[in-house]
Simulated assay, not measured.
Amino acid sequence: MATVASLSICGVTQSSPDRKISLPSSDPYAFRVRTNFSFHSITLRASNSTSTSRFVVHCMSTGTDPPPVSETKLKFLNAYKRPIPSIYNTVLQELIVQQHLMRYKKTYRYDAVFALGFVTVYDQLMEGYPSDDDREAIFQAYVKALNEDPQQYRADAQRLEAWARAQNAGSLVEFSSKAGESEEILKDIAERAGGSGSFSYSRFFAVGLFRLLELANATEPTVLEKLCAALNINKKSVDRDLDVYRNLLSKLVQAKELLKEYVEREKKKREERIEPQKANEAVKIVLAENQYASK
């Protein structure tokens, strides 16, 4: 089966769950640090020939520490307990790990373009899934596992899609001089990306931009360049990430075709095995009827 590529999204780093740093025991002041996501404990121990003193400082979590990846994956599995075909499950599991790391970066801030990009990627990846209801249930479980609102994702994506369909290359790029809900979203992104606030670029954001251009029938490279400039986004990063996205979709299509061929081949084998059985049953019935008639 063809190898299924996956989106690769930069993430935050996590410290080891139990790391100690110690000075040699001969030093009069032993210093130990134990770190994880829930607390920090610093122990200072001074010793001499007559007494030993110990000073412990506990720095409790303020609630901003990110959960471990395993917790997000477990929340997803608990929310959607039905088996997922491996061709889809492989991509989903890698995607949720990478989005977890991006989601809990300090600079992360949800926006509608990011939501449009994720919804676009998800719908493309899950195209052809056996059940529409299951596909939406998986979407709900996935987004909720990241402590976000799936209804908001869908609503914001649909709103931007409707807006983009009414635009053209010129009006899309000139959002800063226009008034409107979607225009205000883009203005806010441009301000934050320009350095006035928190902004974390991701490949989902790049796909969201491309989707806007696609719906506005403005996919020329020059339009993308102008839109990136208006949003204070690095076009080279967008070009690179869109190439990754296209490559992923291409390989996923190949894998789905191979899976379809395999299913059809197995179905044909089962039918070929069933036909002789049906013929034997028919012969038995005829023979039994003949025997009955001859009596």
Rank of each mutant, 00 (worst) to 15 (best):
T3S: 12
S8V: 12
I9Q: 12
G11R: 07
P17K: 10
D18I: 05
I21F: 11
P24A: 03
S26D: 13
D27I: 07
Y29R: 08
A30Q: 15
F31S: 08
F31T: 09
T35G: 05
L44K: 03
L44T: 07
S47N: 05
N48Q: 05
S51W: 11
F55G: 00
H58G: 02
M60Y: 14
P68W: 04
V69C: 14
K73S: 12
L74K: 15
L74S: 13
K75W: 01
K75T: 02
V91W: 10
Q93S: 08
L95Y: 04
V97F: 00
L101T: 12
K106S: 14
T107Y: 10
Y110G: 11
G117V: 02
G117K: 05
Y122L: 02
S131Q: 07
D132W: 05
A137M: 11
Y142Q: 00
K144L: 12
A145C: 09
L146S: 11
P150K: 06
Q151A: 10
A155I: 14
D156V: 05
R159M: 13
A162L: 12
A169D: 14
L172K: 09
E174A: 13
S176L: 06
K178P: 01
D188K: 11
G197N: 07
S198M: 06
F204Y: 15
F204I: 01
G208D: 05
R211G: 09
L213K: 05
A216K: 09
A218S: 10
E220W: 02
P221M: 03
V223Q: 07
E225Y: 03
C228G: 06
A229W: 07
L231W: 07
I233G: 04
K236N: 14
V238N: 08
V238D: 04
D239E: 13
L242C: 06
V244I: 13
R246V: 03
N247H: 12
L249E: 10
L252E: 14
E264D: 15
E272Y: 01
E272F: 08
V286Y: 12
Q291L: 10
